[in-house]
């Protein structure tokens, strides 16, 4: 494996990790879950990205999580 490929894969790994820890992949995970459960069933519509992120913070509003000291 060349140096360029190694650097590129390390950078991709880092980006994947940062996004994961910050929670940026939440919508992708939701969509993957939705597809695997409901598939093409349109009775349960999949939220759009915008709807999903709104729903996420609204859920946090009614279900607060403590931060540690």
């Amino acid at each position: 494996m060349g140096v360029v490929t190694a650097v590129r894969s390390a950078a991709a790994g880092l980006a994947w990790y940062v996004k994961g820890v910050l929670g940026e992949d939440a919508y992708d995970k939701y969509r993957a879950h939705h597809e695997s459960v409901h598939g093409a069933d349109t009775a349960v519509p999949c939220m759009t990205a915008r709807e999903f992120w709104r729903d996420q913070t609204d859920r946090q509003d009614v279900n607060p999580q403590g931060r540690c000291c």
Partner: peptide, 12 residues
């Protein structure tokens, strides 16, 4: 449910 309950990579 893809939201509150979602399997997450152990390192993340």
């Amino acid at each position: 449910d893809g939201k509150d309950y979602a399997a997450t990579d152990r390192r993340v």
